Amino acid sequence: MPLTFTLDPAVTPALRDGILDLWTDVSNAGGAVGFVPPAAREEIRPELVRHFVAMAEGCSRLLVGHDEAGEVAATAFLTFNAHRLMTHWVWLYTVMVHPRHQGRGYGRDLLAVAEEAARSFDGVDAIRLTCRGGLGLESFYGSCGYKEVGRIPDAIRVAPGDDRDDVIMLLPLD
Rank of each mutant, 00 (worst) to 15 (best):
M1I: 06
T6M: 11
L7A: 13
L7D: 03
A10F: 07
L15V: 15
R16C: 04
L22E: 02
T24S: 03
G31M: 08
G31P: 07
A32N: 10
A32V: 07
V33L: 05
F35P: 02
A39T: 02
A39H: 07
A40H: 14
E42T: 05
I44A: 06
L48V: 04
R50K: 15
F52Q: 13
F52S: 05
A56E: 15
E57G: 09
S60G: 01
H66W: 09
H66E: 11
E68M: 10
A74S: 13
N81I: 03
L85T: 13
T94W: 15
M96P: 06
V97T: 11
H98C: 01
P99Y: 00
R100T: 09
H101C: 11
G103M: 07
R104Q: 15
G107P: 05
A112L: 12
E116Q: 11
E116S: 11
A117N: 04
F121E: 10
F121S: 01
R128T: 12
T130S: 10
G134C: 02
L135T: 14
L135R: 14
F140A: 04
G145F: 08
E148Q: 15
G150W: 09
G150Q: 06
R151S: 08
R151I: 02
D154V: 00
A155C: 02
V158H: 08
D163C: 01
R164I: 01
L170T: 11
